[in-house]
C-alpha cells in the first residue's frame, strides 16, 4: 500500500509509513508514536487523527486497543484566547 503517500496527521504531515516504521522499530504505544513523530501533536490537538493512530498501533502491534485513553486530553481542549483563560468574562455572567 502507498504508505509513503498516505498522510495520517494532517497538521504535522506525518505519513502512515513513518508511523508504521516507528511502531515496528520501537514496538511502541500511541503516546510514544506521538512523541517520536509529532503525529497528533499539531494545531487540532489530535482531534482528527487520534482514533486512527490508536488503530494503526493496535493493528501493527497485533493487540487490542486498551481501555485507558492512549493519547491524553489536556485543558484547554478548545482554542481559547488569553482573555478567556484569564477569566476576562467572569464578571459579566
Amino acid at each position: 500500500m502507498a504508505g509513503e503517500k498516505t498522510i495520517v496527521c494532517r497538521c504535522e504531515e506525518v505519513t502512515l509509513e513513518t508511523i508504521v516504521d516507528t511502531i515496528e522499530q520501537y514496538s511502541c504505544s500511541s503516546r510514544e508514536v506521538k512523541l517520536r513523530t509529532r503525529a497528533g501533536m499539531g494545531y487540532c490537538g489530535g482531534r482528527t487523527c487520534r482514533n486512527v493512530i490508536d488503530r494503526i498501533v493496535a493493528a501493527t502491534n497485533g493487540e487490542p486497543i486498551k481501555d485507558e485513553l492512549q493519547l491524553s486530553y489536556r485543558s484547554p481542549i478548545r482554542p481559547a484566547t488569553f482573555e478567556v483563560l484569564g477569566g476576562g468574562h467572569e464578571n459579566e455572567s
Partner: peptide, 25 residues
Amino acid sequence: SEGMEKTEKLLLATGATEVPTPIPG
C-alpha cells in the same frame, strides 16, 4: 468561551466524532 458557569450536576452529551480513513490524496 463565554466565561465560567457553576453547576451542581454536569451532564456531558457531546455526541460523537467522525473517524477518517486516510488514503493517498
